[in-house]
Design a protein around this nucleic acid. Structure first.
Lengths: 120, 120
DNA sequence: CTGTATCCTCCGAGATACTG
DNA sequence: CAGTATCTCGGAGGATACAG
């Protein structure tokens, strides 16, 4: 099933616009989602690996955020058929693509800093 | 005073990256900043005008958010020399440019929705 | 009109301990 | 290892009233 949405239609449909921005914000807000995504960009990881890589995160927070990111289709949780069971988290293609948004944010952030420094 | 920052340097300097993303997030997070920016994109407005345009916002919140947005160089507050005094809020160029980030978010949000619907 | 001042509620997030 | 269960606190945001 394919749904065709033309970006040029967005201006005619502000609801789609708002919805899409909200979807994106849901993935980016909160203290830990970005660090977790960043961690998984460099490869599949196990729970304990992520916990070790992100300073100060508690298992409760990591668990909660991973659940939300999975629900939102940003990460995939794989249960490996081993003994004992190994759980691996992996970023999805959508999750990887969010880099485009981050790039835009970096660009704006840097330009903005230039502008505000100029006028001081 | 001009500061030259090459985007290709960012990869070598993760601190700049993180700083810029944080700057951007500071402008976008919270319940009211985006609606306020959206309202001002369509022209200068007075306090009461914005309050009327954004459903459910309280004067306390509007005041607080406008102050923060002004501090961050997103809006400019103009005091007109009339009697009684008129205060006009206006979006800055930086504020206008943040549309680039929103465009990226819209694009990702729509693509993401397509992807997750396909796999259901 | 352009905001402040209080008081209050709710939720994100931390600390710590525990389970299978 | 891969999480869950409680307890707690601070801060974002709401309700309402008031000030210049």
């Amino acid at each position: 099933m394919k749904i065709e949405i033309n970006l040029s239609d967005v201006k005619k449909c502000p609801q789609t616009f708002v919805l899409a921005v909200n979807d994106t914000m849901n993935v980016l807000t909160g203290k830990w989602k970005l660090p977790i995504i960043a961690s998984l960009v460099f490869g599949r990881k196990r729970f304990k690996d992520i916990e070790r890589e992100i300073p100060k995160i508690t298992p409760k927070m990591l668990s909660k955020e991973l659940r939300e990111l999975e629900l939102n289709g940003i990460v995939k949780r794989n249960v490996l058929d081993t003994y004992p069971v190994i759980i691996e988290y992996q970023i999805t293609e959508s999750g990887r693509n969010i880099k485009m948004v981050l790039d835009a944010m970096v660009k704006w952030g840097i330009e903005h800093r230039k502008k505000t420094l100029e006028t001081v």
